[in-house]
Design a protein around this nucleic acid. Sequence first.
DNA 1: TTGTACGCGTTATCAA
DNA 2: TTGATAACGCGTACAA
Lengths: 360, 360
Amino acid sequence: MQGGTFLFQLRYFCMNNRQNKFQMKRGVTLKDIAQKLNMSVSTVSKSLSNDPSISPPTKARVKKLADEWNYIPNEAARHFKLNRTYTIGLIIPNLMDQYYALAINGAEKVAGQHQYNVIISQSHEDPEREDKIVDLMLRNRVDGLLVAISKNREDMSVFKKTTYTGIPVIFFARPPKEDGFDAVISDNEHGAFKATEFLIKKGHKRIGHIMGPESMSVSYTRMEGYRRALDKYKLPYNSALVKSVDFTQEATFSAMRRFMKMVTPPTAFFAFKNYIALDAIEYLKRKHPAMLRKIDFAGFGNLPLLQYLDHKPVASIEESSYEMGEEAARLLLRTIHEEAPEEGRPVQHIQISCRLLAHK
Amino acid sequence: MQGGTFLFQLRYFCMNNRQNKFQMKRGVTLKDIAQKLNMSVSTVSKSLSNDPSISPPTKARVKKLADEWNYIPNEAARHFKLNRTYTIGLIIPNLMDQYYALAINGAEKVAGQHQYNVIISQSHEDPEREDKIVDLMLRNRVDGLLVAISKNREDMSVFKKTTYTGIPVIFFARPPKEDGFDAVISDNEHGAFKATEFLIKKGHKRIGHIMGPESMSVSYTRMEGYRRALDKYKLPYNSALVKSVDFTQEATFSAMRRFMKMVTPPTAFFAFKNYIALDAIEYLKRKHPAMLRKIDFAGFGNLPLLQYLDHKPVASIEESSYEMGEEAARLLLRTIHEEAPEEGRPVQHIQISCRLLAHK
DNA sequence: TTGTACGCGTTATCAA
DNA sequence: TTGATAACGCGTACAA
C-alpha cells in the first residue's frame, strides 16, 4: 500500500470537491467508508473496534478499505463526545531553562503513558501573558493544568477560578505564596541547608546568600535553609549578607558589586540557583579575577551545561526536575480521574527530595 | 464577581449530578444559558458573537448571565464543527538542545499570532518514536506538522502519507535527504564556508572537520562548505581530516583521539555544531591540556551557554533558530490556508542566512 | 448480525 | 428579532 494508495487518496479527495477551504474534508471518516461499502456507520465503527457482534467477513471488508483509504480515527471527535480532550496544559516561565525542559520531559512521559497529550506554553515571567495562556487553554478544554508560575504573580484568582470550574491545577517547582493549592516542589529548605552546610564544612565562615526574587515564596524557603545551616554551626546570621536578585544578569552583577565592596566580602556564596551563580562567577571574572579561585559557590540546579565550565559552583543541589515533572503529571492525572471533584478534598503537597552533588 | 460567583458555580455543578465521572459536565454551555433564560441556543450563540440581528436588551441579558456563570466557549466543539483544530504539531529531536528551544519560541510566537495552538513532542532521535508521534498527532487532527527529523530517519513514507492526506508538513533545521519536501533551513553551506574561512584567515593551514552523522543530509552540506573554503584558499582537501560523529560524547572523544594520534594533528577544527566542539574541547582538557590554547574551534550554533565558558570556540555560526521557527510556522500556516492543496504545487524551500560571530 | 437513533457544543441556514 | 434544525465524527444503547 505504497505509492498507488497515495494516488488513490488524491483522487478520492478530488471527488468531494468543496470550494470552501474551511469546509474541506480533512481525512476519511467512518461515513465515507460506510457509504462506499453500503453499510451503516455503526457497523463500520464496530468492525474497526473489533466488536464481537460483527461477522468476520464484514470486518475484513471494512478493515481492508480502511487500510486502503488510510483511515485515521478522529480522536477529537471521540473526546468531544466524552467531554474531555485528553490534553493537559503545561505552563512554564521559559523553555530555555534546562530545568523546565527536563521537567517537561518527565511530565510528557507520564502523560504519554496515559494517552494524554501535552500542550506547552511559556509565560516568559509575565503574569498577564500567563493569564491569557490559562484562558486559551481553558477555551480549548484542557483536562488539567500543570503550572510553574511566573515570578511576579501576585493575584491567584485565575487559578482559583480554574479550580472551581472543575479543571484541576497542579503547581510545580514554584508554588504560589498563598496556601490552598496542590503542588509538587523540591525539598527546598533542606536542599538549601545542605548546600550551605557544604560550604561551611569546606571551612567558610562568611557565607553570602544570593537570594531569589522577593515575590517568590521559594526564595524565602531557601533562605530559611541557609539560615538554619548557619544556626546549626553557630555562625551569625547577617542580613547584609543576603541580597535578592531577579534572575537578570544586571541584578546579579549589582548584588555582587555590593558584596565585593564590603570591608570583608563573603568567601563563599549560596545562590538561589546556579544560573545566578554563573552570572556571579562571570562578574568576578570581569572585575575581580584574582578572587575567582578563592570564592566558592553552591546553588540549586545541576545543569548539564555545568560539565563544560572551568569555573563552576563547587556543589549543586540536584533538583530532579525530571522526577518533579513526572510527579506533577501523576498527581494531576490522579486528580483528573478522581470522582466528584466538587467535594472538599485536602490540599495535596508532594515534596521531592534534593541531593547534594559536589563537583569535580 | 469573585467568591460569590464561585460558590454559585459549585452549586450549579452539584445540581446536574451525573454519577459517571466521564460524563461529568465540564463547564457551562450555551444550552445551560439558553435554558435559564428561556431562549434558544442559537439566540445565545448569536448574542455572544455580537450578531447584529439580536436586540441589545437580549444581548445584555445573555452576556450578563454568561459572565456570572463564567461561560467559557468550547473551542474544541467549535473546531470540531469547522473540521480543523487550529493546532499545529511540532516534532523535534530534543528539548534540551537550546537550538530547538529557541526555534520553538519562534514558531509559537507566529502560531499564537494566528490563534493556533502548538503541541510539542520529542523524538529523542528515534525514528520509531517519531512515527508514533506523527500517528498520534494525525489522530488528534493537527492542522499541520513542523518537523526537525531525527538523525537516523531513512524511510520518509510516514511523511509522504501525511502530506498526501492533506496535512501539510514543513521540515526545518534538518531537511530530509530525499527531495520533494517543503523545508526551512539555514544556509548551511555558506555558513560552513564562513566558519572554515575564519579559521584559515586566522592562519590555520591544517583544519579538521568534525562532521555530523552520515545519515543526515546537512552533514554533507556543511562538509561541502568546508571543502569549498579549503579550495578557495588553495588548501588541500584531505579526507583523513574529516571524521563523522553521532552527537554522543563518546563518538566525539573517539574522533578526537584519532585526530590527535596523527603525526601532525590539525591545528583547528570546524565542528558540525558547537555542542560537538564543546565535547572536543572537553577531550583536549582531559587528554591534551597543553594543546588547549593552541587549537581553535569553530562551529554551528551560537548557544547562550557559551558566554559562561573559558575555553570556547573562537567563532560560531549564528543560525537564527528563532527566526527559523518563525519562518517555518509562517510557511506552514500559509500552506494550511492555501486553497486546493490537491493541486500540484512547487516544493517550497526557504533558506535562512547565517552570520559568523567571532567570540571574545 | 446489522441498522437506527441519539448526543456531545457549536454555528450556519433557513423559517417564523 | 428570534427559533428550529442540521451538521461536524464518533460511540453506543437499543431495535430489527
